[in-house]
Design a protein around this nucleic acid. Sequence first.
DNA 1: CCGGGCATAAGGTGTTATCTTTTATTCAGC
DNA 2: GCTGAATAAAAGATAACACCTTATGCCCGG
Lengths: 241, 241
Amino acid sequence: MQIPSGATVLQEPIVETLGREIVDGVLAPGDRLTLDALQSRFGVSRTVMRDCMRVLESLRLVYAKRRIGLVVQESRFWNAYDRRVIRWRLSGPGRERQFTELTELRVAVEPLAAAGAARRAPSQAREEIVSLAAQLRRLGEEGDLEGFLAVDIAFHALLLRASGNSMFAELDGVVAEVLSGRTHQGMMPFHPREKALAEHEAVAAAVAAADGPGAERHMQVLVDEVRAALEDRLHDGQLPD
Amino acid sequence: MQIPSGATVLQEPIVETLGREIVDGVLAPGDRLTLDALQSRFGVSRTVMRDCMRVLESLRLVYAKRRIGLVVQESRFWNAYDRRVIRWRLSGPGRERQFTELTELRVAVEPLAAAGAARRAPSQAREEIVSLAAQLRRLGEEGDLEGFLAVDIAFHALLLRASGNSMFAELDGVVAEVLSGRTHQGMMPFHPREKALAEHEAVAAAVAAADGPGAERHMQVLVDEVRAALEDRLHDGQLPD
DNA sequence: CCGGGCATAAGGTGTTATCTTTTATTCAGC
DNA sequence: GCTGAATAAAAGATAACACCTTATGCCCGG
C-alpha cells in the first residue's frame, strides 16, 4: 500500500512482532484486536493480515471470534513447544522462567533419550557420538569454551535425534538453547570439569555398546548436576494460581 | 462455491483432511501440491485454501516455494507436539509408534512433574490431588474401569498442570491419550492393582506434604511399571536411518 | 556433443473490492 | 426489569488482478 515495495520479502515479520508482543505481555490475554486495526497498523492488506492471524491462531496465541475480533489467549493455551514461542519467551521478560522450565524438561528427557539411543541408534550415529565425546575432552582440556559449547550441543542433539523417539528428537533445539544460554548469559556458571568430561565419554561408550541402562545412568549423573544448580536458583515459592 | 450452504462452518475440515493425509503418508514427503489443484479439489476459494496451507505450514507439514507449489515435509520437521499432529498420528497407520513414543515421553516427564507439584503447587491443587487419589482407590476396588480411567486422567493431568512448568503442563492431553489408549485399545492390558493404588496415594501424600523427592520416587515406581511393559512390546531393532 | 546463459511461464505473494454470516449490543415493548 | 427483535460490527468467503521469483527448457557457442 504505502510501500510500493520492490523486494518481496515475506510479510511475516508481522507474525514475529505480534507473537513477541503477546508473549511479552504487551498484549494481555483478553485484549481484542481487529483485522482492520492491524492492517492499518502494519500497512498491509487484509489477506496478509489474515494469513498472519491464522498462524498466530495455529500457535494458539489468539483465537478469532466473529463480531469480536481476535482475542489474545491466556498463556496456558499457547503451543509451548513451538520453536517460535520458545524463542519469543526466551527473549522477553519471561526469559528466566522459560529457561528454568526448558532446563527442567531437558533434565527429565535426556536420560531416557540416551537409553533410547543406546538401544536403537543406527551404528553411524553411535560412532559419531563417541567421536563427539572425544572432541569434547580435547576442547575441554584446551579450555576452548566456544568450541566446547558447539560440540556439546552437537553431542546432546545427536543423542536426542538418535533416540528413535520423534518427541525427544524435536527437543534438540531446546537443548541447544539451554546449553548456549548456560554458557553465554552466565545464567549458570559453566566450567567443563573432569567429571563432566568423563561422564560424556561414559554415555558415549554405553551408547556404542548398546548398553541402555548404562547410558541412562551416566546421563542421569550429568543432568543431576544441572538439576542441583537449578534448584539452588529456584525460589520454590508456591504458585499464586 | 458449489455449496451456497446455510451453515458457514469454518472451512478448516480441509486442514484436518490434508493434515491427516500427510501424517498417514497418503501424501509423501516431497509431493507437490498447488493452490489451484487444492482449491478445485475442495471447492473453495483461493483465500480459504491459502489460510489452510498457512496453518499446515505453521505445523511444518508443508513448506511453500514459489514456482513449485506446496511441498510436503519430511516427518522429522513436523511440529510433533501440536495437538492436531499428535491426534493425526494416533489415528493413522503410525498409531502404535506414536503411542509408544508418547508413553516414553510420559515416563520421562511425570516423575519430575510430580516433584515440581510437591514443591510448587498451590494448596488447593494439593488437596484436590489427595482427593483424586482417594477416589482412585474407591473406584479401583469397585472395579469401575471407566470411572477409574477418568479419575486417573484427572489425577495425572492435574499433577502436570500443578507442576509449575508450562512445558510439563502442556502434556496433559498427551497423558490423557496414553492412559485412555491403554485402557481402551488394550494396547497395554490394564488392571488397577493394589500396588498402583498405593503408589498413587503415596504420590498424593508426598505432594500434600511438599515432599518433592518422595513424590518423584513414588511416581517413578508408577511409571517404571509402564516402562517395563513398554520395553516388552518394543522390538528394540536398530533404526534404518 | 556438451555446457552456460537467457527467455518463458508456472505458481506463490500481495492488493482490492464486495458479499455473506454470525452475534454482541441496543433499544423498544410488554 | 426482563424479553425479544432490530442494528451493525467484524470475521468469513469469493473473485479478479498485478507482481515477483525461479524451475525449466531452449538456443547458441565452444
